[in-house]
Design a binder for these strands. Sequence first.
RNA 1: AAACAUUCGUUGAUU
Length: 337
Amino acid sequence: IVSWNALITGHAEYEQYDEVLSFWMEMQMAGIAPNTATCVRILQACSVLEEADRGQESHSEVVHRGFENEFFVSNTLVDMYSNCGLLEDSQNVFSKISVRDAASWNALIAGYSGHQLEKETQNVLWEMHCEGVSPDSITFATLLKACGSTGAIDKGLDIHAQILKKESEDLYAGSTLVDLYAKCGFLQESQYVFDKLSDRDVVCWNALISGYADKGLTEEALGCIEQMQCEGICLDPGTYVCSLQACGGVGTISKARELHADIVKDQFEAIPCVSSALVNMYVKNGFLAEACEVFDEQTSHDVISWTALIAGYVEDGNIEKVFNCLQKMHMEGVSPN
RNA sequence: AAACAUUCGUUGAUU
């Protein structure tokens, strides 16, 4: 059991959730009983992969083992159902929790607000208030994220005001605000909130860069990178992905090549989202040969990198290559979406 | 001897 758990948590930490689930299957076949830590990891994997069916199976397993009321387990169940969009189940599990903490509430709220169910979200917030639990910075970040994904700037402003009243500044809520303003097209506000954050980490930088990239402001986006380096903040894979997105326009290819070189230096080229961002960047700039080169170096291709490459050939009018790709894609067991 | 856990912020293609 110890070594199984080591395997499972190890993979979970590296975000290899598919592996978590396949180990879990092996574990079941070997007839080894999970403990609460294993169950948490498995549910987490189902949550991230939005595997509702397997989540439900695992829920029965949890009940069968008598872990249902274990503290971490029940919160993870709420999270899993929330993430999978099974909000009734989420609510059911939540209702059965005897001692609810902020995480329980936040997981439920994330489910409702993430699925744009405003009324339900408000209801939960109200219930929370009635039970004397006040929203924390995570609650705010959750609510703001929902505003960002729908571009609901009014609501975002409202929450921003509430935060200013209550919370001392918080990095999570701060980054979400940077992101929210950027997504709604208010880049100055985004920059302003960003400037006011005292401890800036890589994620809030990335949010800012992503805002500039989205609007095609290559200079600004790449300027951020320089500043980050000055401040001694390490660029992470996300930074490169955001920055590469800023390199779609004319005259950006040389900067993009520099980024590519840095990515190689930092050994991020094998990370799927980074390499597909590279493929995409070369495609957008019309360098299909280089796109292909990066693509071929990938250890495995997912739908996204296939689609990026195919889109390039379509743009190029190279029908033959398009069909070629579709065939190879099929052979690799990747189905188009 | 070993795993110790849940909620939150940024990021890839197409539509």
